[in-house]
Each structure stands twice: as structure tokens, then as C-alpha cells.
């Protein structure tokens, strides 16, 4: 091989390349570490859900002779026998109804605030901004009393929860309003000139264009009830049949001892809850990302 003369700029270029190769390697290593850290809890939760011996202390990394451990589907079978299917059904019903109603309400709200110019528009938006600064926790005490008064707390907590989730969902209009704002107004005006009513404009022109944000709204509305803990706990009180999964599983962890199986059953329950939500989320991920990056930032 003949030695080749490199110009200064070529040398500099090569130096930069080497530097970027090193930095890329470092970044790859960091990303691997990050991924491991982010995955550890999920891997652990899945592994632990197959343990059949009690207590939350685990020594699976190193083979510890003093602990007898065994594997099996015991937790999932126990789960099926416990109140868990009921909680699951409760949550599923809530999520389904809320997903439909909340989407309709949020879309109505955000579309109107994005497209119409009426006298109360600005005051309404400012008012809701101020309302949002009050801690929602405050409203819970009274909402619980009211629900109790009309018989929708305790054993009947499910319709009560649905009512409250749906009724207050108008507040979450920011993201989809941001999206509607990006659809050119000239489309509406053209249709109006052609004689379409406002309602026709919405259903025939805007909604088909707004598919990503509709899916985003449905997705977030559906996922919300799976994670709601405080209010559901408050409303369902001490009636286990009216728990949702979050309250139910938390009640297990709260009574976890060295001798019962609640900890591992919690893990199994967590896996059962997470699987459908994660699958749904992964399928619709594209829309979620679009919603978050498009609407949320502008909001």
C-alpha cells in the first residue's frame, strides 16, 4: 500500500469521524443502560408473578440456599378465584363508557373553542384556566358526599365514578383544541360558502381530518380509569365489589405480610392489567405521539 498524503482538512475530518464514532459508542452504551433501568421493574414484576412462595423479599439473582422457592401459575389461579375478575370488569366498563362519552364531550368543547368566535369564548377559556389551578382533590370530599346522598357511592360506585369522570371531562380540551387550530379555517369557509351548515362542516369535513386527535382522545380517555386511584378509593369506600383494579390491587399491597401471597398476586394482577393496555397503546402509539407532540406543547 502506498502512503497517501492527507490534506489538513481531510485529517481534521477523519479526526472528527473518529471522535463521533467514540461518542456514538458511548451513547449506545448509555442507551443500553437506560433501557435496562427502564425495563427492570417490568421484568421483575413478570418474574415475580410466577413465584408461588409468599413474601416480597426475593433472592433470585444469587442462589440463596436458605430460601425454598418454587415457580408456577398459582398466583394467576388465585387471582381468578379472588375479587379480581370483578374489579377488572368494573374498570373495563368504566373505561369503555368514559372513552365514548369523554371523547364526544372533549371534541365538542375543543372544536367549538377552536372554530367559533362568540362573546363568551375568551372568558370561558380563562375561567377554565383558573378552575384548573384549584386542586381537584378539594372537590372530592363534596363529590363523595353528594354521590353518597344520591346513592351512587359504596356498592354503586361504578355509575357514580362514570358520572363524575364524564361530567368533568370538558376541562381537558387543550390538546385537541391545539390540533383543531392547525386545520386551516379556509376549509370551513369554503364549505360554508357552498351552503353547508355548521354541523355539516363538523361531521363531513373536520372530523375525517381530525382522525389522529380523535384516536388520541379515545386512547387517553380509555387509559385514564385504569390508573385512577384516589377518587375511586374515596367513592368505593369499604365495598370490595365496587373497587377498580387500582384500588383493589393497592388494598392487597397494603395488607401484604411475610406470610400471605398478596404481593405476588399483586404482581400477577399488574401483569393482567398491563397487557391489554400496553397492546392497545403500542398499536395506537403513532397517534399518541402525534397528539402529545402536536397538541400538548402548544395547548
Amino acid at each position: 500500500m502506498s502512503t497517501k498524503e492527507y490534506t489538513v482538512s481531510e485529517k481534521r475530518h477523519m479526526g472528527m469521524k473518529a471522535a463521533s464514532r467514540i461518542s456514538n459508542t458511548v451513547i449506545h452504551i448509555i442507551l443500553v443502560i437506560i433501557s435496562v433501568i427502564w425495563l427492570i421493574p417490568f421484568v421483575c414484576i413478570v418474574i415475580q408473578s410466577f413465584r408461588t412462595e409468599p413474601t416480597s423479599m426475593s433472592r433470585y439473582l444469587l442462589n440463596h440456599p436458605s430460601i425454598q422457592y418454587s415457580w408456577g401459575f398459582g398466583n394467576y389461579i388465585n387471582l381468578w378465584k379472588s375479587d379480581f375478575p370483578r374489579w377488572y370488569l368494573n374498570t373495563f366498563i368504566i373505561a369503555l363508557v368514559v372513552a365514548v362519552v369523554q371523547t364526544v364531550i372533549v371534541l365538542c368543547m375543543s372544536y367549538t373553542l377552536s372554530r367559533f368566535r362568540f362573546k363568551l369564548r375568551k372568558p370561558l377559556m380563562q375561567f377554565m384556566l383558573i378552575l384548573g389551578m384549584f386542586p381537584g382533590m378539594l372537590a372530592m370530599i363534596i363529590l363523595y358526599q353528594v354521590l353518597k346522598d344520591i346513592g351512587l357511592a359504596g356498592a354503586n360506585a361504578i355509575p357514580g365514578l362514570i358520572l363524575v369522570y364524564c361530567a368533568s371531562s370538558g376541562m381537558g380540551y387543550y390538546v385537541s383544541k391545539g390540533f383543531f387550530d392547525t386545520i386551516p379555517k379556509s376549509l370551513d369557509e369554503a364549505a360554508r360558502v357552498d351552503g353547508a351548515t355548521r354541523a355539516q362542516v363538523l361531521f363531513k369535513i373536520i372530523l375525517p381530518l381530525a382522525k389522529p386527535i380523535v384516536i388520541y382522545t379515545v386512547l387517553t380517555a380509555f387509559m385514564g380509569p385504569w390508573g385512577d386511584f384516589v377518587f375511586a378509593k374515596y367513592v368505593s369506600g369499604v365495598t370490595p365489589s365496587a373497587y377498580n383494579v387500582a384500588v383493589g390491587l393497592q388494598s392487597w399491597l397494603a395488607t401484604d405480610t411475610m406470610t400471605n401471597n398478596y404481593y405476588t398476586m399483586f404482581c400477577a394482577g399488574g401483569v393482567v392489567v398491563a397487557i391489554p393496555v400496553v397492546i392497545l397503546f403500542m398499536c395506537l402509539q403513532r397517534y399518541y405521539v402525534e397528539g402529545v407532540t402536536g397538541g400538548a406543547v402548544k395547548g
Binding site: I45, A246, F266, V277
Partner: peptide
């Protein structure tokens, strides 16, 4: 995607 209460409690 995973409901926060599961990861937080875990």
C-alpha cells in the same frame, strides 16, 4: 403505557 399505579406501587 403501563398504568402508573402499577409501576409506582411496584
Amino acid at each position: 403505557a403501563i398504568p402508573q399505579f402499577i409501576s409506582l406501587l411496584y
